[in-house]
Each structure stands twice: as C-alpha cells, then as structure tokens.
Amino acid sequence: MATSTYTVKGMTCGHCVSSVEEEVGAVTGVTGVQVDLATGLVTVDSDGPADGAAIAAAVEEAGYEVVTPS
C-alpha cells in the first residue's frame, strides 16, 4: 500500500471535495481518497505507487488543477 499527497487549486466548497473524491477514487489502483478543503491537500491511498498523471487527469476532469505532487 502506498500513500501520496497532491496540492489541488480551485476547490472552494463541499461539492468540490465530493467531485475530486469521486473522480480520483475511480482511478485504477486507488483504494482511498481524503480531501482537506482548507489546505487543498488530496491524500491518495493506492495498492502500489500512484500514477501521478492519472491522478492529475482525474483532478482536471473534476474541474480543478494539481499544483504540486508531493
């Protein structure tokens, strides 16, 4: 199991959080997603190393932008 954290720009409400959780949660291998609206941090748990490009694409599909993977 692996955990990675991303900073996401543009989230302003609970609906934003739900959208990001839903899109990122659908990425193959992702087992859990936690979004902190106040900090913009998205923590992703996955079976193995997360596919950063797929995570970023899912965030963009939700309408937001990954600023920096950490």
Rank of each mutant, 00 (worst) to 15 (best):
M1P: 11
M1H: 10
M1D: 10
A2L: 02
A2F: 12
A2G: 07
A2S: 12
A2D: 11
T3P: 00
T3S: 13
T3A: 09
T3W: 05
S4E: 12
S4H: 10
S4C: 01
S4M: 09
T5G: 00
Y6K: 00
Y6E: 00
Y6S: 01
Y6C: 01
V8W: 08
K9E: 15
K9T: 14
K9I: 11
G10V: 07
G10P: 11
G10L: 07
M11H: 07
M11Y: 09
M11R: 07
M11C: 08
T12A: 14
G14T: 07
G14C: 06
H15N: 13
H15S: 11
C16E: 11
C16G: 10
C16F: 05
V17N: 08
V17P: 06
S18G: 12
S18I: 06
S18R: 13
S19P: 03
S19G: 11
V20L: 07
E22V: 01
E22I: 03
E22T: 15
E23R: 14
E23V: 02
V24W: 03
V24H: 03
G25S: 04
A26V: 03
A26D: 13
A26L: 02
V27C: 06
V27R: 03
V27M: 06
G29V: 08
V30Q: 01
V30H: 01
G32D: 13
V33W: 00
V33S: 00
Q34S: 09
V35L: 08
V35R: 07
V35I: 06
D36R: 01
D36T: 07
D36H: 07
L37M: 12
L37E: 07
A38Y: 08
A38E: 14
T39S: 15
T39K: 05
T39V: 10
G40E: 10
G40W: 10
G40F: 12
L41S: 12
L41T: 14
L41I: 11
V42M: 08
V42H: 05
V44C: 05
V44E: 06
V44R: 00
V44G: 02
D45N: 11
D45M: 01
D45T: 12
S46Y: 03
S46C: 02
S46D: 04
D47I: 10
D47T: 14
G48L: 05
G48T: 13
P49K: 11
P49V: 10
A50G: 02
A50M: 00
D51V: 04
D51T: 04
D51F: 08
G52H: 13
G52R: 13
A53K: 09
A53T: 12
A53D: 12
A54N: 05
I55C: 00
A56K: 13
A56Y: 09
A56T: 15
A57F: 03
A57L: 03
A58R: 02
A58P: 02
V59F: 06
V59I: 14
E60W: 01
E60D: 13
E61G: 05
E61P: 00
A62R: 08
A62P: 01
G63F: 03
G63Y: 04
G63D: 06
Y64C: 02
Y64I: 04
V66F: 06
V66S: 05
V67I: 14
V67W: 09
V67T: 15
T68Y: 10
T68V: 15
T68G: 15
T68K: 15
P69N: 13
P69A: 14
S70A: 15
